[in-house]
């Protein structure tokens, strides 16, 4: 049995990675709410966020802040491209949602393979945003990057909440999620809202990738595990509920970290999928589905 310090340390690690899952989960929700599509290429945006930022930092040698500022719109652009080149043409041709979802999965594999062929399979990383550390609290070590993840994650959640509740476009996106026809009848351009959703979702994935890469590494294939765990986080929280996805991500991250110290690293995914099965059995609409009428997309 692990001791209290190992427990505490694993919870700290779990919160860090859980927040990333939560951000990926929110990305799933944003697109799902605007279009009804589950974008299985969501993890690709996390991979691209880390890859592009790493390339800008090491190949071009530009400062971190500039690399971050450039990476986010570049990856967001890939989200827009996916909507314009894959999703919209299929929708316009009357493809079923299942077919479109399958196409996003194909897009994920395609982008991974292109990345592998062009950049190789070498794992890449870059330094934490703040050098030094880790911070020692007794015997518990907390890397500075965790504070960046927590701080940026909190700011992002606040920004998203403000966007969805205070801005014209954010409200319009929520309106699309609740009744797309009614939204159109009030003059809301639903197609443009979908484009916005894909761009926003990709930007969220990029930020998650930029934040998490210094704590581990990025490679052509990291998108899949982040995508799967983000998807599980979204389901745990009640698919479509951004706040639920964040909470689901934190829960999942902590449970995975605890599973590693208690049962061993091999049980990480067993824990994640067990939690998913349990939630689906006990709360088919997600743990947080009934926690307030305004929970959706907040």
């Amino acid at each position: 049995m692990p001791n209290a310090i190992e427990f505490t340390q694993s919870i700290v690690n779990g919160i860090s990675v859980g927040l990333i899952y939560g951000l990926v989960g929110i990305g799933f929700c944003v697109i799902y709410n605007a279009s009804g599509i589950v974008n299985f290429a969501q993890g690709v945006f996390v991979m691209l966020g880390g890859m592009v930022c790493q390339a800008l930092l090491t190949s071009l040698g530009i400062p971190l802040i500039l690399a971050v500022v450039l990476t986010i719109p570049l990856v967001a652009l890939s989200g827009l491209l996916m909507e314009v080149a894959i999703v919209r043409p299929m929708m316009n041709r009357g493809a079923t949602l299942f077919a479109i979802i399958l196409a996003t999965l194909a897009a994920q594999i395609m982008v991974e393979r292109i990345t592998l062929l062009t950049l190789g399979d070498r794992p890449r990383t870059y330094e934490e945003f703040t050098s030094g550390g880790p911070l020692k609290l007794g015997d518990v070590a907390i890397g500075y990057q965790l504070f960046w993840i927590l701080g940026c994650g909190a700011l992002l959640v606040l920004a998203l909440w403000l966007f969805f509740t205070r801005t014209r476009s954010g409200r319009a996106l929520r309106a699309c999620s609740q009744n797309r026809e009614a939204a159109q009848l009030l003059g809301i351009p639903v197609a443009r809202m979908m484009l916005l959703a894909f761009g926003l979702s990709a930007a969220l994935g990029a930020i998650a990738g930029i934040l998490v890469t210094p704590t581990q590494y990025t490679a052509y294939n990291v998108g899949t595990p982040f995508g799967v765990n983000g998807f599980i986080a979204a389901i745990i929280g009640g698919f479509g509920r951004a706040g639920g996805a964040l909470a689901g991500g934190l829960l999942l991250g902590v449970l995975q970290a605890l599973a590693i110290v208690v049962l061993g690293a091999g049980f990480k995914n067993v824990a994640a999928l067990s939690v998913l099965l349990l939630v689906l059995l006990l709360f088919p609409n997600g743990i947080f589905a009934g926690f307030g009428p305004n929970a959706k997309a907040h």
């Binding site: 409200r171 319009a172 309106a175 609740q178 026809e181 009614a182 009030l186 305004n294 929970a295």
Partner: peptide, 25 residues
């Protein structure tokens, strides 16, 4: 502008938000 059968409201939004979205244009 059309009011749909079944009202077509945004049920999880408040009355205020429904009206504000009505003024999208």
């Amino acid at each position: 502008v059309m009011v749909q059968e079944g009202r077509g409201l945004f049920p999880q939004m408040s009355v205020r938000e429904n009206l504000v979205i009505g003024g999208y244009l």
